[in-house]
Amino acid sequence: MSRGLVTGLVLAAVLAVLPFVWPGYHLSLLTIIFYWIGLAACWNLMCGYTGYIDFGSAAYTGVGAYVAGILMIRLHLPLAVSILAAGMGAALVALAVGWPTLRLRGAYFAIATFALAEALKQVAEEWASLTEGGIGMTFTIRLDEMTYYWLYLGLSGLVVGLTWWIEHHKHGYGLKAIHEDEEAAAQVGVGTHVLKIKTYALTAFFIGILGSLEANRLGYFKPDDVFDVHITIKMVIMSLLGGMGTVIGPVFGASFLQIIEDILGAEFINYYLVIVGVIIVVVIMFMPNGVARTILLRFKKPAGAEK
């Protein structure tokens, strides 16, 4: 326990000073990697642990971006306040959507969220008097590049740490029980509906914050960017590659995919989604536990009875 803590602190310190040693281009790659670790970890915390699949997480990056955008650009509120409000706005939307859908079969949740992101995108397009519609919004106040890196590092660390904490505490056992058998979980006293909603709103909160920060970092955004279904796709595949329902899975998945994307570059984007789709299908067919975990399990098979 304390050794784990020391390792964690050392790791955090190393990562925090990394940009000084390795500035320039690498800073933006590292920044973007931690951004995606944060997003994938949020997705994994809800979907990997409960087994309810959210296909519309981009709704929350979008809501976050627009809440922050409107508050900062139109109302001239400070950045910190706007970002926090962005998280809360996303959490509120998640509560509203989670309440009716998380009582039903996972199928309803999967597609309702899928539809949600699209519907919100349309609203952002149409409600031009508030959102500038398809023209998009431009931030005038931004932070320095290094700050974004530290914020993403901190946020992704926080979400991963939170996942670890939940995994080892009451909530984690409740979530896992829900994943295994919801009816049986209720029979032993797990308030399944509320537990799912809480978790969902919590992750939406962080996605909203990350989404608003990223929109701010890029300086300009429009509905197509922040409600982009590919944001959700990446969150799904990063969790899937790393192993759903594990603390460290999204860290591996997000780093791996983001680095690959960086190496292959923009040329590749057309083929990218095809390949991502094929990977999803193949992973589900042959390695439903995630690539990282499947490989790990193969290594330690003899002792592998504990998890």
């Binding site: 699949i53 296909f55 199928a107 899937l240 991502v276 789709g277 999803i280 299908v281 589900i284």
Partner: peptide
């Protein structure tokens, strides 16, 4: 669901 999502892509 995830599989048909992959097929969709």
């Amino acid at each position: 669901y995830i599989m048909t999502f992959g097929i969709h892509l």
